[in-house]
């Protein structure tokens, strides 16, 4: 009995010591060349969200080019505020990569988090997802010009939905209205819960116009239920050459959701470059090309950090101006 007790307590201490040992080892200090330990990819969504799919995919594919393993971590909450705080609390050493979307720019511009765009360093833009406007195929508007003319004739009548009340969709609607010389009081903007919600409402004739991205509209368009009145891409989309752009219809609105990687500002330039090269190589991997294609996303590469970083900061500034109104 006594011996048994001793064996068990011995086992306990060993187990405890083992746990701590592994923990210490995982966090022991070593100043080898970057990256000498797994790199974390932090996403703001939970399992199953679009951004977590990208995060997981990158964590699976990129280690091949980084020479070090990567893990995808969820830090959900506050539209990414929790994830931002998680990274900003840590040192700027490139071991915590923020895989995120336009939402970050919006959150920063709203000024609700104790960080600014200067606390971030853009690494690479991986995807762009142009904003688009769709109506039911049986509605009278054939293109965006028709729609604008109709709104002008019937102010305050059009039921136009977008995701959420504050975000990229209302921003897009505001830009479009501004480009047509209209005002937000000329329509009824209906904040929806997301793309599926808008699709259902549009199919059920509860709304007239929806703000949707190519991925969200292409199936309904192919089935002949919806018509795309315009996209916020600079030129016509390769996969959908029949969709007009806003630009060609005379409305200078280019707006898209992007997804890409950011790190904490102050990360050494060599580390940023290493990360950029890794993701850039991954971007050209056939598996990633297929991943983008399946998700109906467009490759959003715009050059190194020297291109993406200023783009990101400028976007935050633009959004700030929009929210200040």
């Amino acid at each position: 009995m006594e011996r048994q007790r001793k064996t068990i307590s011995c086992f306990m201490w060993l187990a405890m010591a083992g746990m701590i040992f592994l923990g210490v080892q995982a966090s022991s200090v070593a100043l080898a060349e970057y990256p000498d330990r797994p790199v974390e990819i932090i996403v703001k969504g939970g399992p199953g969200s679009g951004i977590s799919q990208l995060g997981h995919f990158a964590a699976k594919l990129a280690p091949k080019y980084l020479g070090q393993s990567m893990v995808c971590l969820y830090k959900k909450g506050g539209s990414g505020a929790v994830a931002q705080a998680y990274i900003q609390k840590r040192s700027a050493d490139g071991y915590h990569v923020f895989m995120d979307t336009t939402t970050t720019a919006i959150v920063l511009a709203r000024g609700k988090v104790p960080f600014t765009e200067k606390d971030w360093q853009g690494v690479i833009r991986l995807q762009v997802d142009p904003q688009g406007v769709a109506v039911r195929a049986d509605s009278p508007w054939k293109n965006f010009k028709d729609l604008a003319a109709w709104i002008r004739k019937n102010p305050g009548k059009l039921r136009w939905a977008g995701s959420h009340a504050v975000g990229i969709d209302p921003y897009t609607v505001a830009l479009l209205l501004k480009a047509t010389g209209l005002d937000s009081t000329d329509i009824k903007y209906v904040p929806a819960e997301g793309a599926s919600h808008m699709t259902t409402m549009l199919l059920g004739k509860h709304i007239d116009v929806a703000t949707l991205n190519p991925r969200e509209v292409k199936e309904q368009e192919a089935a002949g239920n919806f018509r795309v009145l315009g996209t916020g891409h600079p030129e016509r989309l390769k996969d959908h050459p029949n969709w007009p752009t806003f630009k060609e219809q005379g409305f200078d609105v280019v707006v898209a959701i992007w997804r890409g990687a950011l790190v904490k500002a102050g990360t050494p330039a060599a580390v940023v470059k290493k990360l950029h090269d890794t993701f850039n190589a991954m971007r050209q991997d056939p598996a990633f090309v297929q991943f983008l294609k399946n998700a109906s996303q467009i490759d959003g590469y715009m050059g190194g950090p020297d291109k993406f970083d200023p783009f990101f900061k400028e976007q935050v500034q633009k959004m700030k101006a929009y929210f200040a109104k």
């Binding site: 199953g48 599926s196 292409k218 199936e219």
Partner: peptide, 25 residues
Amino acid sequence: LGVPGSGSTAVLLGALMLHNVAPGP
């Protein structure tokens, strides 16, 4: 319709898209 009826089917929709099977009409 390609519209999820619940949280789980919404995630299922995302999974199908990954495999290039886009639920829709």
